[in-house]
């Protein structure tokens, strides 16, 4: 970069990027900073305190919402990943699959629609079917929009994996199930993991559908936080947000780490 005539270099890009990243991280930093504020008023600093964390962690409703969110996300992730894995195996590896393009579009349909439309769709569906169990409604709704997020990384990994490995396995006397269990699955594991991770995060993060399906006893974390925000900004909200940010960052770092390790096992 010291070379004066580097033709790819444009002036001002560096500072611009620095400002951009500052802008990207400023809101997060602000939330974290004010979560340690002792004052009841969010933006009036009056000293360091952890009391809002104590308050947040002893908040029954919050913990219930966390539990609901985790349960819904876990079940929806398992269902979505399983469904997506099977679909990807057929759509990538199957020979002479009829209507392959149409099938793929159907699996990815939730990505093509605005989520608000999707949430109205499931709301009307449940009202017509007469399903009253709020938890089950959430699980079904979340499974629907998580499926394409699980599908895409799995498909990408399968497409990147040479089918010679499966041929070699069959050549070495493994039947289709053994081949899947001992060759295909271990080799696409990073993709499956990434897909599941994405599905889990998307489910945990979802507000629109969960809010639409919200009923007593099935309030997810984002819906609960939304309710708190409507009551006004409080330092406790900052503490909750900071905890969420912390967990998100740990999960993201973990995902990246595992992804990076997966990338070292070359499948070409």
């Amino acid at each position: 970069m010291a070379f004066k005539h580097n033709v790819r270099q444009y002036r001002g890009l560096g500072p611009f990027t620095v400002v951009f990243f500052a802008w990207l991280y400023l809101p997060i930093a602000v939330v974290i900073f004010y979560s340690f504020n002792e004052n009841r008023l969010v933006s009036v600093w009056s000293g360091f305190s952890l009391k809002w964390y104590a308050e947040a962690l002893s908040n029954r409703n919050l913990m219930n919402a966390v539990q609901t969110s985790l349960s819904v996300a876990a079940i929806a992730t398992i269902c979505a990943t399983g469904i997506a894995l099977m679909a990807a195996l057929v759509l990538v590896r199957g020979r002479n699959v009829k209507y392959r393009r149409v099938s793929e579009t159907i699996v990815n349909l939730p990505l093509l629609l605005p989520e608000i439309v999707l949430s109205v769709a499931v709301l009307i569906l449940f009202s017509q079917v007469g399903l009253a169990n709020g938890f089950l409604k959430l699980v079904i709704g979340h499974t629907t929009f998580c499926t394409p997020f699980a599908f895409l990384p799995i498909r990408a990994r399968l497409q990147g994996m040479d089918s010679d490995f499966e041929d070699a396995s069959a050549d070495l006397y493994a039947n289709r199930w053994t081949t899947f269990r001992r060759v295909t699955l271990p080799l696409i594991a990073p993709g499956v993991f990434a897909g599941a991770m994405l599905a889990f995060v998307i489910s945990m993060d979802d507000f629109i559908t969960s809010n639409m399906l919200n009923s007593g006893g099935s309030t997810t974390l984002p819906v609960y936080i939304f309710g708190l925000i409507r009551q006004g900004t409080t330092p406790e909200l900052n503490a909750i947000s900071t905890l969420i940010i912390l967990v998100s960052l740990i999960v993201a770092a973990l995902a990246l780490f595992i992804q990076a390790r997966g990338a070292t096992t070359n499948t070409h």
Binding site: Y25, I28, M204, D205, I225, I229, S241, I244, L249
Partner: peptide, 8 residues
């Protein structure tokens, strides 16, 4: 930041 909940 994309990993952090939208509502936050």
């Amino acid at each position: 930041p994309f990993w952090v909940s939208m509502i936050v």
